[in-house]
Amino acid sequence: MSARFSRAGTQNIALALCAPVLFLIFWHFSTSGRAFSLIPPPLDVGKQLWDLAFGGVWDDLYSGTLLEHAVASVSRVYGGFLLAAACALPLGMLIGRVALVRAALDPTLQLMRPIPVTAWLPLAMIVFGIGPTSAFFLVFLGAFYPILVNTIFGVRNVEPRLFEAAVMLGVSPSALFWKVVLPASLPSIFTGLRLGLGFAWVVIVVGEMTGVQTGLGAIIMEARQLSRTEIVISGMITIGLLGYISDYLVQLLGKRLLRWSPQHG
């Protein structure tokens, strides 16, 4: 039984690796050895990524700085994300459960929702100045709406039968929120958090592109101006990996908390 599982596991990993390996081969043969390729071949990018992370290849201004930039981006992503969650979760619960709050706030929030986060950048720069605070604000905004919308959806779509069951079993109306609404909407809330964190990673690069000294978005933008395309791609790969790891961790947490839910457990 376990042998068959591990064989299926190996097979899945092999299948998952097919696409990137084919892509690397294609990339290599279409760029390697050409005199005027604007896109560097994968081996050059690999070398650059190594230098960025550990130094010792080029020993220039960028050598060994990857950790510093990654830490700056990660802290902005999680900072903005946590602040977004701290605002969007209670607000979503209030909008979902209190008709008065819904009537007062929902139209405004829905009206502002279609505005792309990137469109806020100029305004953010005026209000927060050129620098990391604007990036932080954009991440906050990017994560805020997915969390808010999914929280509202979750608390509004609790099966009415569960309220009847709880009241029949002796739950007081004031305890319904903690005993029924919150646990029942947890899967939706969790989906919102996961989407929000994903958006935070998307937005961080845009946020760091103007006037920020550190961060993966900052070095991507800087390297573009210096035509160091290897560094641009190295930064992209790092963001991809960090985003993947952070989503994986959130999913692990979800599997633990939502063991009861057929969609998650």
Partner: peptide, 16 residues
């Protein structure tokens, strides 16, 4: 209230 326990056709169990 608890003195009148209801058993629903669709169970109404708390899935969590």
């Amino acid at each position: 209230g608890p003195d009148r326990g209801m058993v629903f056709q669709d169970y109404g169990l708390f899935p969590w």
